[in-house]
Simulated assay, not measured.
Amino acid sequence: MLKIPAISVEYLKIPISGASDLVTFPVEMAVVPDGQDPDSDDWKTAEWSTAGEAMVLIGPGTTLPLTKGITYVAWARLTLAPETPVLASGKVHIT
């Protein structure tokens, strides 16, 4: 389980494997408490890293300020018309 301090501002990354052109498609990420599925309001526009990872900035002052003491699950959603795959990633505990 990944542990991140609540005061840290950093990119949370999800490795995505598949065709090499995946990075040309829109990607979103959601970070929700463990045991919950993302709602429509939870999805945030994400970016692609040069290593083919979906990434979103988390921490104070971002659109995803996470709460100390809570364990979250990161999710990625790609728009690959007609498909919209949703992928759950690992857990993140905010310390």
Score class of each variant (00 low, 15 high):
G69W: 06
D39N: 13
V27T: 14
A19F: 09
L2H: 02
Y11M: 06
T45S: 11
D37A: 10
M55I: 01
L80Y: 10
K91P: 01
T50F: 03
G69M: 08
V73T: 10
D42K: 00
K44L: 01
M1S: 13
V92T: 10
G61K: 02
D39S: 12
S17P: 03
K44P: 00
A51L: 13
W48Y: 08
V32T: 11
H93R: 12
P26Y: 10
G35W: 05
A76H: 03
L12K: 04
V31P: 10
V73R: 06
S17F: 14
A46C: 10
D37V: 02
T24Q: 15
A30G: 09
T62W: 02
K68P: 01
A51Q: 11
P15T: 12
G59Q: 00
K3Y: 09
K44N: 10
A76T: 14
D34M: 09
S17A: 11
A6Q: 04
T84K: 13
L64E: 05
D39A: 13
I14L: 15
K13W: 02
L22T: 05
H93C: 04
I4S: 00
T62V: 06
A30C: 15
T24F: 13
S40I: 03
K68I: 01
A76L: 07
G35Y: 06
I70V: 15
W75L: 08
D37G: 04
T63E: 15
P26H: 13
A30I: 11
V73G: 04
L78D: 13
S89E: 10
A19W: 11
A46P: 07
A88L: 07
A74T: 09
T71F: 09
L57Y: 00
A54L: 04
L2M: 11
L78Q: 15
P60H: 05
V86W: 04
M55S: 03
K3D: 05
D39W: 03
M29E: 08
Q36K: 10
W75I: 02
L64K: 01
A30T: 11
L66A: 04
P5R: 12
I16V: 15
D34T: 12
K13V: 15
K13A: 07
S17K: 12
S8E: 15
A6E: 09
A54I: 01
W43T: 11
I7C: 03
P26G: 15
I94L: 06
T24E: 15
V32N: 14
L80C: 14
M29I: 13
P26K: 13
V92D: 08
L12E: 14
P33T: 10
V31H: 14
S17M: 10
I16S: 06
A51H: 07
A76K: 02
L22N: 09
S40H: 02
D42I: 02
P85N: 07
L12Q: 12
I94N: 03
I94R: 07
V73L: 04
I58F: 00
P15H: 10
D41S: 08
E10W: 05
Q36C: 02
I7N: 13
A74Y: 00
D39R: 09
L2C: 04
T79G: 11
S17N: 15
E83I: 07
A51R: 07
S20L: 13
S20M: 06
W43D: 08
T95V: 11
M55R: 06
V92K: 02
G59D: 03
G35L: 04
D39G: 04
V86H: 04
T24Y: 15
S89C: 06
W43E: 13
